[in-house]
Design a protein around this nucleic acid. Structure first.
Length: 587
RNA sequence: CGGGGCGUAGCGCAGCCUGGUAGCGCGCCUGCCUUGGGCGCAGGAGGUCCCGAGUUCAAAUCUCGGCGCCCCGACCA
């Protein structure tokens, strides 16, 4: 029997001053977690119980489609070199040296280790498909850990990897994960959305994120109220209303206009009496790439054109270019384009006509494709150009979707207005493709005895974030309530006065019977005043409370549902039946 | 890495400007009392004032250096 008086459940009346988000405040106040260092937390008794329940659900569901491994967290530099990520991951990868001076890394994901096993062991198409997973700590040297358990340096991840002979096989492995993830999050009692996602630094094509809406989240998700379209802002698109182009002025050729001191889009549009929609926003960026001949890194100018009222989406730009960029400095703009920074425009510059060719790259957002008589900087202090038409007055390297969707724009599928919410990512599935199997040299023989590279997928779930998201999803001023499936206890039994023999023994009896029926029950046998015990019961995330008080003389207790505060009298003999009915859905 | 803030008892904070006895609330311990929403009374324990150096007769307080933590931004599977 779990007696509160004997357990370590250090609840706090006040939240630590540095806690900002609800989950952080309450998990600390409720005695679930304690901080060890920035982004590093210990789980105490209640936290660990909840954590273990989540792990059990994930494991049970994953065992339905895959096999569990346990991989080392300490990785030799060599395998990260082999995949190319030693250089790519930058500061986010924890690195250390052993006493001999050899470089090691703490695993942030395990594509390399899993692929290394596949490379050495998989020989034949007959061994495929494989789905291997593990539940293990991951490490990230975050620039800024924050929000309690939401962005941390060490966390527990369920990571899975699939190996298939061909794309059709990968589709199936991916689908299995998609469905399994839905079952996992359903069983954990989370309200979640599945959104199309950008695959970012992972490479690969198709990708979905499992998101829980909360203001504490760090992701923006775009969703449609009219259909099931949902996507991460990094990936989302929308249907734009047609824009009326300006009429050509003069002979229709680019026409210089004097715009003294007008630098911003807003200023220029107002000054010329046009809408920002008829203006071109010119953004100058720099990226680094390897020179084909010398093999040395060199800078490459990237100029991006957006519709005046649109925002550049960095994630989209990154995936269009395949590498990150930084803003160009004023001196660089001057040196490369002989233009003052506020008046840069696309004309009169020899743009590379393909990304593989030398020269500055001109990427133009699709919203400008087919437009005419636009206005942009003239590469000359205090002047802009009218009558600009892409393709006629300048030749873009390429058109691409580079724009961030804004709330209220039309859904690409059905046209209904789109909404934007903040959310926290609890799961992410990727079709990786050949990136790791190729670079690390995994090969199997196919039916025809020919060597082929297996195609991979990778699939993650943040265990800690399931708990955090659940707290974010269910809390009020007094504390939080977890879904029964992941709560440390489903029921807390609160005798109002342990000094009264009848109350005390009834509480014990009820606890015994519920435990015998398989429920997780916490008996608050502390000799405290009722107010203290009620406050604690409200705080610690347990979804049901049984108050044992005066009504024991009538063989009756009160059952309180934490989320709704609904109170119901139940007779003691009926208590087990009652919870079997109410908690029936639990697994 | 840029900007801002903080570091004094387990938690929340005051004291610092203007150098001299380290303080408040909650929590904790003992006793009495009380028992349906963080009771009441009495007594008590608990501090390298983040670390180091300096100035000074004297430093929580002033100066310099370092470390840690939080927030905003940048970054981000």
């Amino acid at each position: 029997m779990h007696r509160w008086s004997r357990l370590f459940i250090p609840t706090l009346r006040e939240a630590p001053a540095d806690a900002e988000v609800a989950s952080h405040k309450f998990l600390v106040r409720a005695g679930y977690i304690r901080q060890l260092a920035a982004g590093i937390y210990s789980y105490l008794f209640l936290g660990n119980r909840s954590f273990n329940k989540i792990v059990a659900i994930v494991r049970e569901e994953m065992d339905g489609i895959g096999q569990e491994f346990l991989l080392p967290a300490l990785h030799p530099r060599e395998i990260w070199e082999a995949s190319g990520r030693w250089a790519l991951m930058g500061g986010n990868l924890f690195r250390l040296k052993d006493r001999k001076g050899a470089d090691l890394a703490l695993g942030m994901t395990e594509e390399e280790v899993m692929t290394e096993i596949a490379r050495k062991e998989l020989r034949s198409y007959k061994q495929l498909p494989q789905i291997w997973y593990q539940i293990a700590p991951k490490f990230r040297d975050e620039l800024r850990p924050k929000s309690g358990l939401l962005r941390v340096r060490q966390f527990m991840m369920k990571d899975a990897y699939s190996f298939d002979i061909d794309a059709a096989g990968l589709d199936l492995s991916y689908k299995k994960h998609y469905e399994t993830y839905c079952r996992i999050f359903d069983r954990c009692g989370l309200k979640y959305m599945v959104v199309e996602a950008d695959s970012g630094a992972m490479g690969g094509k198709e990708s979905h994120e499992f998101m829980v809406r909360t203001p504490a989240g760090e992701d923006q998700i775009v969703s449609c109220g009219g259909c099931n379209y949902a996507a991460n802002l990094e990936k989302a698109t929308s249907r734009l209303a047609a824009v009326e182009d300006l009429a050509a002025e003069g002979d229709g050729k680019p026409l210089e206009v004097h715009t003294p001191g007008q630098k911003t889009i807003e200023d220029v549009a107002k000054f010329l009496g046009v809408s920002p929609r008829n203006k071109i926003k010119t953004l100058a960026l720099m990226t680094e790439e390897k020179d084909a001949q010398s093999g040395k890194m060199k800078l490459r100018a990237i100029v991006v054109l957006m519709r005046g009222d649109h925002q550049l989406n960095e994630a989209k730009l990154n995936s269009a270019l395949g590498k990150p960029t930084r803003p160009m400095e004023e001196s660089e703009i001057k040196a490369l384009f002989n233009s003052p920074a506020g008046y840069l425009g696309p004309t009169g510059i020899e743009w590379a006509q393909h990304v593989t060719k030398d020269g500055p790259v001109l990427l133009v957002d699709k919203a400008l494709e087919g437009r005419s008589n636009l206005i942009a900087g003239a590469n000359k202090e205090n002047y802009h150009l009218k009558n600009l038409t892409p393709g006629r007055d300048f030749q873009p390297t390429a058109y691409a979707d580079l724009r961030s969707v804004t709330a209220g724009e039309a859904c690409p599928n059905c046209g209904a207005p789109l909404g934007i919410d903040t959310a926290v990512e609890v799961g992410h599935i990727f079709k990786l493709g050949y990136r790791y199997s190729e670079s690390m040299g995994a090969r199997v023989l196919d039916k025809n005895g020919k060597e082929v590279t297996p195609i991979m997928g990778s699939y993650g779930i943040g265990i800690d974030r399931i708990l955090t998201a659940a707290v974010e999803q269910g809390n009020d001023d007094n504390g939080f309530w977890l879904p029964p499936a992941i709560a440390p206890f489903e029921i807390v039994v609160t005798p109002t006065n342990v000094g009264e023999e009848k109350v005390k023994s009834a509480a014990e009896e009820i606890t015994n019977r519920l435990e015998a029926a398989g429920f997780n029950v916490l008996l608050d046998d502390r000799d405290e005043r009722p107010g203290v015990k009620f406050k604690d019961a409200d705080l610690v995330g347990i979804p049901f409370r049984i108050t044992v008080g005066k009504k024991v003389t009538e063989d009756t207790v009160e059952v309180v549902q934490r989320s709704t505060r609904e109170i119901r009298d139940v007779t003691i003999p009926a208590i087990v039946d009652y919870f079997q009915r109410v908690l029936q859905a639990r697994t």
